[in-house]
Amino acid sequence: MQVQDAGQGEGQQAGPQAGFAVIDWSKPWFAPFAGRGRRWQQAALTSYAALLAEMNADAAVMRQTTGRGQRLAFIAQDDLPPGAAYEAHIASTGCVPTRHNLHDFFNGSMWFAFPRIKAALNARQSAAIDVLGVGPTRGGVRDALTLFDENALLFACADPALSAALRGFDWRTLLVTRREAWGSSCEVRCFGHALLEKLIAPFKACTGHAWIVDVPPSYFEWNAAARDAWLDESVSAALLDTDALASRMFAPLPVLGIPGWWPENDAPVFYDDASVFRAGRRSRLA
């Protein structure tokens, strides 16, 4: 196995150790993943080989599988055979090609935080590749799956009025007048690994694609592990439903606008920035 410090491509950091060093696990978007993340961070700061070893040690304990039931493992990017499609390789072998950078670090993290969702995404992606092959464009289904994988927020909500406010770009209702509902009727989990990478250096316009998950009111009485397990099962089932994926719409949500996630949003004037909290086409039509 060839293990080098720098691969090329999306998410590559200039000097990967520098990127790993600045992860702030106290931030609300990183905090749910901090337990395992801190161990992986220390390994990544040691070497590429140490990171892969730590990831594979956890995979051996968890016994997670990928989209076609293969046992999860992590390999160096250089071990991906020439011409092999990334998702198809994961499905057929269980081996996730991983670079020594933040992008792939957070991708690996999601295999443990939401294993069923990751397996469902891999199953759908590899099935689409079987049918259409790997061409210059992914096609609508693969585009939607990739968008979810890279940039999704899971918006868990027990109040249809709040879901409607999100879909309708009604920021004032969702984030100001119904602010007290956050934590008791709705909440967000970051899932997209490219989004997590961007949040290393957060900026006001940083926007995720929210996937709305209807949850029972009792959801907010459960502990964090039970909530994540429920989301993992529910969302993975939806992703495997071909009709649901085709019809489901993402809703843009500026991450720093989430109540409690950024100090400046305590002031309602924070949401007056129309360049970030846009009306949206559907709101304009209404």
Rank of each mutant, 00 (worst) to 15 (best):
A84P: 06
V176C: 12
S126N: 00
A60S: 14
R71Q: 15
L145C: 02
W111H: 15
L175P: 04
H89Y: 14
Y86H: 10
M62F: 13
V61H: 00
L174Q: 06
R172P: 02
L72V: 05
L166I: 09
R178N: 12
M110E: 10
R116C: 10
R116G: 08
P81R: 08
G83K: 11
A161H: 06
A123K: 04
R124D: 02
D170E: 06
R116V: 08
Q64A: 08
P136I: 03
V141Y: 07
A91F: 03
G83H: 09
E87S: 01
A60D: 14
Q70R: 15
L175V: 01
D149S: 14
E54T: 08
P97Q: 06
D104E: 06
D143A: 01
F155V: 06
N56D: 13
E54H: 07
L153G: 05
R167G: 13
R68T: 03
L153Q: 09
A120T: 05
E87D: 06
R179T: 10
S92F: 02
R63A: 13
N122F: 05
G139N: 07
W171L: 00
A88H: 07
F148N: 09
F112G: 13
G83A: 08
N151G: 12
T173C: 00
F155S: 09
S92R: 11
I117D: 11
T98Q: 03
D79N: 00
N151S: 15
F148S: 00
L166Q: 02
F114M: 15
